[in-house]
Design a protein around this nucleic acid. Structure first.
Lengths: 352, 352
DNA sequence: CTGTTAGCGCCTTCAT
DNA sequence: ATGAAGGCGCTAACAG
């Protein structure tokens, strides 16, 4: 019986064994497997036959050891079950698979410590690149150790959220503009007291809140600290709870602006439970479209962003960076790609 | 300037460099990094200091080379953007991260050839284990080469879908029972002509269709081939299209049974576009709950499965298998874990 | 307690 | 066209 490996109970074939069986050198087998150098047709066929027979599969670990490339990239997100992220991951996977890369995915639960741990592990696993939706605060300043993790020692592309002290490429949405548009629409329709429920306090949410405040002040409305809430993990549950809290403590609120899909879902559930009708009792504009928003009763107006494009561009740019590093270049150019939002007007926002 | 690596443009520190700087041997550094063997307190501290200074991170590739373990497991699914899968992946990641593993994720687009390619790559990358929602047909018989990929050469747990010729652990839902329950409910309420829209033709969908047929025959209703459709990739678009097709070609249909969440969403959109009311014009029971189903107008009745549990159990069992293999054992016991469905009665199914 | 050494599986000059 | 040999970074067995 074939000797099995102690650690795993199974036995992988090696190039050496193929070489022995085929009666050639390891180098020759390497040549036919890797398709480099030159081998005579006869030798090639002999070796190829043995490879097939033995079901030999090259050991990518050993290859990586030599090549310094693992052909895998790491993706770190707060919550892979959130459609916003899973759609981005879908797009990333699609693009990098084309280029022969695999994707290691880490879920942090929007916990900074888990994020750092993931970064360390991915570093030690020598991923060729990193795509990260960080949960770090936008004004975070790093010490030396963290700098290596966050500042592009490994080719890195940030998505959705940025850290201002970090000068790496970031693919994001025009959060400020999107929020400004929505709130302006609310105001145009007569709303002055607009409740707003943000996700985790990253640059993304800050910028949306900034857009909200700017629209308010541009229309001469005073910002009221009482009308805003920030989430810990941006869950449906939080959206529900904050909606109720906001509405119960501030009877003057006539419009609600939940800043992401999960929170918006929570808001819809809360309003339903409170027997509040949209838009007769309360107006609503959501963020991040979902398939049933258009056929909801009433259809929900939305600020939307292009998740496919965020994922695709992040992957595309990361591959470029990886490639340029291999060539010893350093990429220049704009470090921030900001995608426009779309305002889908439906029927959840009424004139008052 | 520090010599940079040709392939990547950056330089990783090695154990050798740490050793030189600290004035000790590589073995000693290895001992303090790995925390094995014994080092004097004094040496330990000296080396530790250098490690911190240099920001040394052990190379997991080289470690894997020795240990034969990559501490990563591969997950293969048809569509990571489908909430059913992203929730499962979430649960898997959660469980395996606890055990110090990472997750490589492959999206196949429900394409068998991409699935096989992924399997080959994951094999070559020497993942320690595999969790797979296969798109292979349930009655697939493998040749020798494919057998190595599918039949547990690498510890494997199947999720959601099974291949009968493969004797590996499978964590799945009681598809037959769930469908039987739903269809029985339809029939009890007077429906005889029930349209059914299945996902990709895997064991899962077969079993749901079997449940549908059994409920029909148990109640003396003849199965009508015209009332059933199978998807290619199980998308919202297909759900929409098949719903329209089914209803236009078969005016006698009074109830619809879309067999997964995406298809159900498509059905809802189609009915909306056709101006058909639920349940007055058409009754509906969906499969896989979603947060807004309960507050839809009307609330949608659902057959649901526990995605968290599928993911958790698959991860848990896989870790057990990996562990047992390391100890040279072979796990015995039941090869199939079948989770019960839940029937959530809401208001989308009317008596006729 | 610490250093030396021999691989892990592959790739890659350098000879032949 | 093919083979021999060294080394990627780490671990572990064996000396000292």
């Amino acid at each position: 019986m074939k000797k099995t490996d102690e650690a795993t109970g199974r036995k992988e074939n090696t190039i050496k064994e193929v070489a022995e069986r085929a009666g050639v050198s390891q180098a020759t087998v390497g040549r036919v497997v890797g398709g480099y150098g030159s081998v005579s047709k006869k030798t090639y066929e002999k070796v190829y036959k043995v490879i097939k027979e033995m079901g030999y599969v090259p050991n990518a670990i050993a290859q990586s050891m030599k090549s310094k490339s693992t052909k895998t990239i790491g993706v770190i997100v707060g919550n892979i079950a959130n459609p916003f992220f899973s759609e981005i991951v879908y797009a990333i996977e699609n693009r990098i698979a084309e280029a022969g890369f695999n994707l290691i995915i880490s879920n942090t639960g929007e916990d900074v410590r888990r994020e750092i741990l993931s970064l360390e592990i991915l570093h030690s696993k020598r991923v060729d690149g990193l795509i990260i939706a960080t949960t770090q605060l936008s004004n975070k300043i790093f010490n030396e150790v963290e700098k290596k993790l966050y500042c592009g020692f490994i080719p890195t592309v940030y998505i959705d959220r940025e850290i201002f002290s970090v000068n790496e490429l970031c693919v994001k949405t025009d959060n400020f503009g999107g929020a400004y548009d929505a709130v302006s629409d609310f105001i145009r329709k007569g709303h002055k007291n607009i409740g707003i429920i943000a996700g985790v306090p990253t640059s993304t949410m800050e910028q949306r809140v900034d857009g909200y405040r700017k629209a308010l002040s541009d229309h001469g409305i005073k910002f009221n600290e009482e009308f805003i809430r920030f989430s810990k993990i941006a869950s449906i549950e939080e959206g529900k709870q904050f909606t109720k809290e906001l509405l119960q403590k501030n009877k003057e609120i006539t419009a609600l602006f939940p800043l992401n899909n999960l929170i918006c879902t929570g808001t819809l559930i809360a309003l339903n439970e409170m027997n509040l009708r949209i838009p007769s009792n309360i107006s609503l504009i959501g963020w991040d479209d979902f398939p049933l928003a258009a056929i909801n009763n009433p259809p929900i107006s939305m600020i939307t962003q292009d998740t496919e494009k965020i994922g695709f561009l992040a992957a595309e740019k990361l591959l470029e960076i990886i490639n340029s590093k291999e060539c010893g270049n350093d990429l220049f150019g704009e470090k921030r790609i900001t995608l426009k939002t779309h305002f889908i007007h439906r029927e959840s926002c009424a004139k008052i």
